[in-house]
C-alpha cells in the first residue's frame, strides 16, 4: 500500500474509532514513512533499488594519523 492510500485508510479508521486527535500524528507518521521509503537506496535495499550511498567520510574532517 502506498503512503497516500495508507494515510487515507488510517485517518478513516481513526475517525471511525472516535480518535480524530490522531490526525496530526498520522500525518507526521506518513511523512516519516515516506522519507524512510525514499531512503531505500541510501540504506542499500537488498533488492537492488540503488547502491548504498556511503557518505560517512566528512570532507572537512582532518585525516587520522
Amino acid at each position: 500500500m502506498d503512503v497516500d492510500a495508507w494515510l487515507a485508510a488510517a485517518l478513516a479508521d481513526a475517525e471511525a474509532r472516535g480518535l480524530p486527535e490522531l490526525k496530526p500524528l498520522l500525518e507526521t507518521l506518513a511523512r516519516s514513512t515516506q522519507a524512510l521509503r525514499d531512503a531505500d537506496a541510501e540504506f542499500g535495499h537488498p533488492a537492488g533499488v540503488g547502491a548504498q550511498k556511503d557518505n560517512d567520510s566528512d570532507p572537512t574532517a582532518e585525516p587520522r594519523p
Partner: peptide
C-alpha cells in the same frame, strides 16, 4: 577531531 556519521538525517 571532527568526524561525520553517515545517514544521520534518517
Amino acid at each position: 577531531e571532527d568526524v561525520a556519521v553517515a545517514h544521520v538525517e534518517r
